[in-house]
Write a protein that binds this DNA or RNA. Structure first.
Lengths: 353, 353
DNA sequence: TTAACTAACGTAACCGCTTACTCAGAGTTG
DNA sequence: CAACTCTGAGTAAGCGGTTACGTTAGTTAA
């Protein structure tokens, strides 16, 4: 475990460090024989070139960072965290690995935010920042010292690259489905946190659909949760408690909360979908396993992560190319919770790049 | 975005680079006034010390790596990935961040394995390796050049630190529950991949419980899946197809497959738990939302991740301290799929450190 | 008053790689 | 055979921090 250096490898294989470096980088300018010798010495020594030294020399760490928000403290139900983030992480990891880079992740729990962000910024070549990780001004300040791409966040006056999905179109479509094919007129919308761009856009889609149908257009969500199951349950209860009659359909801001809604409704002896229809958003894998299976809007979470790091990598290679904002398509996936039967499954596409 | 260096900061604030360094590290030996001046210049310039340079100087990157397996290709149901890994990642991230380090993640998809591992090894101070990420010999060779702690893997002849959970005890307890309180005598076990240590241990626990009860002890699992929902569904179907009568209880190797079992059984018009009881393992968050709610064994996934990086950090600070193997306790959580009613919830503890 | 400290810096030698330049010798060419 | 062109290497100057040591001015003790 006594780390050896390139000097030792060079010495032992009777060449210069330059040659060792060339061999390791698979560069040209070394004979097959030399190459083999160096490789065998390196292997024998268990030598791995030091990335800090390399990074210093080439001015590139080969690491991209992913900043995501950590909602709440670790509770008893500590695995009650949004799967959305996990999928994004997976996608980011894949894209980075494919490009020969690595991804470093960091969640901005509580107050550590700012310092954490700087600590991460110093270790990476670029940063993708998920919605809700950092206040706008901190993002702006970080972006001054390292390339940033925003994920699921409204870009601040288009000063940064960003990727998102067609939240609005998706929400508009499920809502339209509820009123058009199931004839609902008494709907409710449960949103996410106040500062969530995703939530805002989905609500906007909901409003569009309501307007399209000539139904009353609300100014704000009927209740809000924090995108977790626990928060969703609270929101649904609140919604139900403050109304004389429950709505006939609830458009919920994401799947975790939608699934929580299913439980709450069952607890209140309300049948889904006959008494109340429910839809979610995201299409996490368990949406299809709850009963009734959850009708929802699929957003390509993993692909969003992939796209974000690809954009970041592009920007690293091409610092002054024009800013980009890509919006990935969403797709409503019909299951049972909206009232559809087994036979009448329908799928529609929304949005584009 | 034109990166500034410590030299520029030093020049602009009229001090030496040593002083700037001291200020940034919060070290002693600089007056409050100097400190303030340097800080303001740094801030104004948006300067972040380059971690590669720092890492080279202090011989420590401040980054730990986490290697995990990526099961299969991204399919249509691409979010069908084990949540276990996601929770471990979260835990690792938390522990690292708390210690001022960052965590770099990499999945060993397909053949890239070896190279990827080396590329990662060069970027981190140490590595946490999840079960199934790498063949034993590669682990051994990586471990020659960077500290490694194994997660959910049988340590190779105790040459490495490792952390796991009490799989055996947990499996033994759920199984015992099935036979003792529900009186089942015709059970079946669905395992994970052949090379999975977790699966082996859980099966061992199952066998112990069978032996305890004087029931026939099988030599191998009745079927195997790959820990995903799709794989679980296949395994359950296989199990059911090759038998005259379905077993009265199925002990499934993890929750994803257990949840799949629920779906498959429903599809075959078999009632859970009355016709067939089912139990899972892990206690992922959706286990409580499926119907019937899944009786399972909780293992502290997040804590496992945390513990692993803490052990790694400890080893980095204390390279020659004795090897450690910690086993975290598991806990059976009784819900409905085993046959228990609402009232008779019971919980038991298994294992210890 | 002066020797002994101490606080607050500055100097400059690394840390382990990469790479622009050089260079020697073998091959080509006219 | 002189003039060139390649090839396969070696030299050494960075890359941007850290830190052991040295220096200076101000304190404290005797």
């Amino acid at each position: 475990m006594a780390k050896s250096t390139i000097y030792e490898v060079a010495r032992r294989s009777g060449v210069s460090t330059a040659t060792v470096s060339r061999v390791m980088r698979n560069g040209p300018g070394s004979s097959a024989e030399t190459r083999k010798r160096v490789l065998s010495v390196a292997n024998e020594l268990g030598w791995v070139p030091n990335n800090s030294a390399r990074g210093l020399a080439v001015r590139r760490a080969g690491i991209v960072g992913l900043l995501f928000p950590d909602l709440g403290a670790p509770t008893e139900a500590e695995n009650d965290a949004p799967l959305f983030v996990d999928q994004v992480i997976r996608g980011a990891e894949r894209a980075a690995t494919l490009a020969g880079d690595a991804v470093l992740i960091a969640s901005t729990h509580s107050a550590v935010g700012r310092d954490l962000a700087w600590s991460v910024a110093s270790k990476v070549d670029g940063l993708v920042i998920l919605a809700g990780s950092l206040p706008q001004k901190d993002i702006a300040s970080i972006a001054r010292s390292v390339p940033v791409v925003l994920l699921a966040t409204r870009a601040t006056r288009r000063k940064l690259d960003s990727v998102g999905s067609d939240n609005r179109g998706g929400a508009r479509q499920v809502t339209a489905h509820l009123v058009d094919v199931h004839g609902h007129t008494e709907l409710a919308f449960i949103g996410g946190p106040t500062r969530s761009a995703d939530s805002d856009e989905r609500f906007a889609g909901y409003r569009l659909a309501m307007a399209d149908a000539g139904l009353p257009v609300p100014d704000s969500p009927d209740a809000r949760g924090d995108f977790t199951e626990a928060g969703g349950a609270r929101a649904v209860n609140e919604l139900l408690d403050t109304r004389r009659h429950p709505p006939r359909a609830i458009v919920v801001g994401n799947d975790e909360m939608g699934i929580a809604a299913l439980s709450v409704l069952r607890g209140r002896r309300l049948r889904v979908p006959s008494d109340v229809a429910v839809t979610g958003f995201d299409d996490i894998s368990f949406a299809q396993h709850v009963r009734p299976a959850l009708t929802t809007v699929r957003q390509p979470m993993r692909e969003m992560g992939e796209t974000a790091v690809r954009m970041l990598l592009d920007r690293l290679n091409e610092p002054r190319s024009p800013l980009r904002t890509v919006t990935l398509a969403t797709k409503v996936v019909i299951r049972r919770s909206c009232g559809c039967g087994a036979g009448q499954a329908v799928a529609a596409q929304a949005g584009a790049a």
